[in-house]
Protein backbone atom coordinates (compact mmCIF):
# COMPACT_ATOMS: atom_id res chain seq x y z
CA UNK A 1 0.00 0.00 0.00
CA UNK A 2 1.21 3.47 -0.78
CA UNK A 3 1.30 6.08 1.97
CA UNK A 4 -1.55 7.83 0.18
CA UNK A 5 -3.78 4.80 0.51
CA UNK A 6 -2.96 4.40 4.19
CA UNK A 7 -3.75 8.07 4.75
CA UNK A 8 -7.00 7.67 2.85
CA UNK A 9 -8.00 4.66 4.93
CA UNK A 10 -7.26 6.51 8.18
CA UNK A 11 -9.28 9.51 7.01
CA UNK A 12 -12.13 7.27 5.94
CA UNK A 13 -12.24 5.53 9.31
CA UNK A 14 -12.20 8.91 11.10
CA UNK A 15 -15.03 10.24 8.92
CA UNK A 16 -17.20 7.17 9.36
CA UNK A 17 -16.56 6.93 13.10
CA UNK A 18 -17.33 10.58 13.73
CA UNK A 19 -20.41 10.39 11.52
CA UNK A 20 -21.71 7.47 13.58
CA UNK A 21 -20.86 9.32 16.80
CA UNK A 22 -22.63 12.44 15.51
CA UNK A 23 -25.82 10.42 15.20
CA UNK A 24 -25.47 8.43 18.41
CA UNK A 25 -23.91 10.92 20.87
CA UNK A 26 -26.07 11.54 23.92
CA UNK A 27 -25.61 15.30 24.21
CA UNK A 28 -26.66 17.46 21.30
CA UNK A 29 -23.55 19.62 21.48
CA UNK A 30 -21.34 16.53 21.31
CA UNK A 31 -23.15 15.51 18.16
CA UNK A 32 -22.38 18.92 16.69
CA UNK A 33 -18.67 18.57 17.53
CA UNK A 34 -18.43 15.07 16.05
CA UNK A 35 -20.11 16.47 12.96
CA UNK A 36 -17.34 19.09 12.73
CA UNK A 37 -14.72 16.33 12.85
CA UNK A 38 -16.48 14.48 10.02
CA UNK A 39 -16.52 17.67 7.95
CA UNK A 40 -12.79 18.19 8.53
CA UNK A 41 -12.19 14.63 7.37
CA UNK A 42 -14.05 15.35 4.14
CA UNK A 43 -11.82 18.42 3.67
CA UNK A 44 -8.76 16.17 3.97
CA UNK A 45 -10.19 13.89 1.27
CA UNK A 46 -10.65 16.90 -1.02
CA UNK A 47 -7.04 17.93 -0.34
CA UNK A 48 -5.82 14.45 -1.23
CA UNK A 49 -7.73 14.65 -4.52
CA UNK A 50 -5.78 17.89 -5.19
CA UNK A 51 -9.04 19.87 -5.21
CA UNK A 52 -7.52 22.67 -3.14
CA UNK A 53 -10.33 25.12 -3.66
CA UNK A 54 -12.96 22.67 -2.49
CA UNK A 55 -10.86 21.57 0.46
CA UNK A 56 -10.58 25.13 1.69
CA UNK A 57 -14.21 25.93 0.92
CA UNK A 58 -15.24 22.83 2.83
CA UNK A 59 -13.46 24.16 5.93
CA UNK A 60 -14.52 27.75 5.37
CA UNK A 61 -18.23 27.16 4.73
CA UNK A 62 -18.97 23.95 6.57
CA UNK A 63 -16.71 24.19 9.63
CA UNK A 64 -16.51 27.97 9.77
CA UNK A 65 -20.14 28.79 9.07
CA UNK A 66 -22.59 25.90 8.97
CA UNK A 67 -21.21 24.08 12.01
CA UNK A 68 -21.24 27.32 13.99
CA UNK A 69 -24.79 27.98 12.83
CA UNK A 70 -25.78 24.49 13.97
CA UNK A 71 -24.13 25.08 17.36
CA UNK A 72 -25.97 28.41 17.68
CA UNK A 73 -29.15 26.52 16.82
CA UNK A 74 -28.39 23.89 19.45
CA UNK A 75 -27.89 26.62 22.03
CA UNK A 76 -31.36 27.98 21.25
CA UNK A 77 -32.94 24.74 22.39
CA UNK A 78 -33.72 23.93 25.93
CA UNK A 79 -31.53 21.00 26.81
CA UNK A 80 -28.31 21.55 24.89
CA UNK A 81 -25.82 20.38 27.50
CA UNK A 82 -27.90 17.68 29.12
CA UNK A 83 -28.11 14.00 28.53
CA UNK A 84 -31.28 13.33 26.59
CA UNK A 85 -31.64 9.71 27.55
CA UNK A 86 -31.86 6.65 25.34
CA UNK A 87 -31.69 6.92 21.58
CA UNK A 88 -32.96 3.40 21.03
CA UNK A 89 -36.63 2.53 20.90
CA UNK A 90 -38.60 -0.48 19.73
CA UNK A 91 -38.48 0.49 16.07
CA UNK A 92 -34.69 0.63 16.02
CA UNK A 93 -34.09 -3.03 15.25
CA UNK A 94 -36.66 -3.16 12.49
CA UNK A 95 -35.26 0.01 10.97
CA UNK A 96 -31.72 -1.34 11.09
CA UNK A 97 -32.75 -4.50 9.29
CA UNK A 98 -34.60 -2.54 6.60
CA UNK A 99 -31.69 -0.14 6.15
CA UNK A 100 -29.21 -3.00 5.79
CA UNK A 101 -31.40 -4.67 3.18
CA UNK A 102 -31.86 -1.48 1.19
CA UNK A 103 -28.15 -0.71 1.34
CA UNK A 104 -27.20 -4.21 0.24
CA UNK A 105 -29.71 -3.97 -2.59
CA UNK A 106 -28.25 -0.68 -3.73
CA UNK A 107 -24.74 -2.07 -3.68
CA UNK A 108 -25.89 -5.13 -5.61
CA UNK A 109 -27.66 -3.15 -8.31
CA UNK A 110 -24.90 -0.55 -8.61
CA UNK A 111 -22.17 -3.20 -8.79
CA UNK A 112 -22.35 -3.31 -12.57
CA UNK A 113 -23.03 0.39 -13.19
CA UNK A 114 -20.42 1.53 -15.68
CA UNK A 115 -19.53 5.04 -14.39
CA UNK A 116 -18.78 3.54 -10.98
CA UNK A 117 -16.26 1.10 -12.40
CA UNK A 118 -14.47 3.51 -14.71
CA UNK A 119 -11.09 4.64 -13.46
CA UNK A 120 -10.69 8.40 -13.45
CA UNK A 121 -8.00 10.13 -15.41
CA UNK A 122 -5.75 12.55 -13.51
CA UNK A 123 -6.71 16.16 -14.02
CA UNK A 124 -4.48 18.36 -16.11
CA UNK A 125 -2.92 21.35 -14.41
CA UNK A 126 -5.23 23.94 -15.99
CA UNK A 127 -8.20 22.09 -14.55
CA UNK A 128 -6.75 22.75 -11.11
CA UNK A 129 -6.73 26.46 -11.76
CA UNK A 130 -9.46 28.27 -9.82
CA UNK A 131 -9.54 30.97 -12.51
CA UNK A 132 -11.03 28.61 -15.12
CA UNK A 133 -13.93 28.04 -12.73
CA UNK A 134 -14.35 31.81 -12.52
CA UNK A 135 -14.35 32.14 -16.30
CA UNK A 136 -16.96 29.41 -16.55
CA UNK A 137 -19.12 31.27 -14.02
CA UNK A 138 -19.31 34.36 -16.22
CA UNK A 139 -19.44 32.70 -19.63
CA UNK A 140 -23.05 32.81 -20.94
CA UNK A 141 -22.51 29.53 -22.76
CA UNK A 142 -21.55 27.78 -19.54
CA UNK A 143 -22.66 28.58 -16.00
CA UNK A 144 -23.63 32.24 -16.20
CA UNK A 145 -27.32 31.66 -15.52
CA UNK A 146 -26.81 29.13 -12.70
CA UNK A 147 -24.36 31.61 -11.14
CA UNK A 148 -27.00 34.36 -11.04
CA UNK A 149 -29.69 31.94 -9.89
CA UNK A 150 -27.44 30.93 -6.99
CA UNK A 151 -27.60 34.53 -5.89
CA UNK A 152 -31.41 34.47 -6.01
CA UNK A 153 -31.40 31.18 -4.11
CA UNK A 154 -29.19 32.65 -1.39
CA UNK A 155 -31.46 35.69 -1.23
CA UNK A 156 -34.51 33.45 -0.85
CA UNK A 157 -32.77 31.48 1.89
CA UNK A 158 -31.84 34.67 3.72
CA UNK A 159 -35.30 36.22 3.53
CA UNK A 160 -37.07 33.00 4.43
CA UNK A 161 -34.84 32.29 7.40
CA UNK A 162 -35.08 35.81 8.77
CA UNK A 163 -38.85 35.77 8.31
CA UNK A 164 -39.27 32.52 10.22
CA UNK A 165 -36.76 33.37 12.96
CA UNK A 166 -38.17 36.81 13.49
CA UNK A 167 -41.85 35.88 13.66
CA UNK A 168 -41.08 33.26 16.26
CA UNK A 169 -39.33 35.84 18.37
CA UNK A 170 -42.32 38.18 18.25
CA UNK A 171 -44.62 35.42 19.43
CA UNK A 172 -42.49 34.86 22.49
CA UNK A 173 -42.98 38.46 23.48
Amino acid sequence: MTPMQILFLITGVVILFSAVMAVSARKMIHSALWFVLALLGVAVVFAMLEASFFAVVQVLIYVGAIAILIIFGVMLTRRALEDNGKHINRATITTTVIVIFVFAGLIYSLRLWVPLLATTTPLSSDHLDVGSLGLAFTDPRQFSLPFEITSVLLLAALIGAIYIAYERKDEKK
Binding site: L33, V36, S52, F53, V56, V57, V59, L60, V63, G64, A65, A67, I68, I71, L128, D129, V130
Partner: peptide, 22 residues
Protein backbone atom coordinates in the same frame (compact mmCIF):
# COMPACT_ATOMS: atom_id res chain seq x y z
CA UNK B 1 2.79 29.41 -2.44
CA UNK B 2 -0.43 27.45 -2.59
CA UNK B 3 -2.95 28.97 -4.98
CA UNK B 4 -5.71 29.31 -2.38
CA UNK B 5 -3.63 30.82 0.43
CA UNK B 6 -6.01 33.72 1.13
CA UNK B 7 -9.02 31.47 1.59
CA UNK B 8 -6.84 29.13 3.64
CA UNK B 9 -6.06 31.95 6.09
CA UNK B 10 -9.77 32.73 6.51
CA UNK B 11 -10.68 29.06 6.80
CA UNK B 12 -8.08 28.50 9.52
CA UNK B 13 -9.69 31.39 11.40
CA UNK B 14 -12.77 29.14 11.57
CA UNK B 15 -10.74 26.63 13.59
CA UNK B 16 -9.96 29.41 16.08
CA UNK B 17 -13.71 29.97 16.45
CA UNK B 18 -14.14 26.26 17.10
CA UNK B 19 -11.48 26.50 19.84
CA UNK B 20 -13.42 29.29 21.53
CA UNK B 21 -16.67 27.31 21.38
CA UNK B 22 -14.92 24.25 22.81
Amino acid sequence: NINIALLYIIAIGGLGEMAIIL
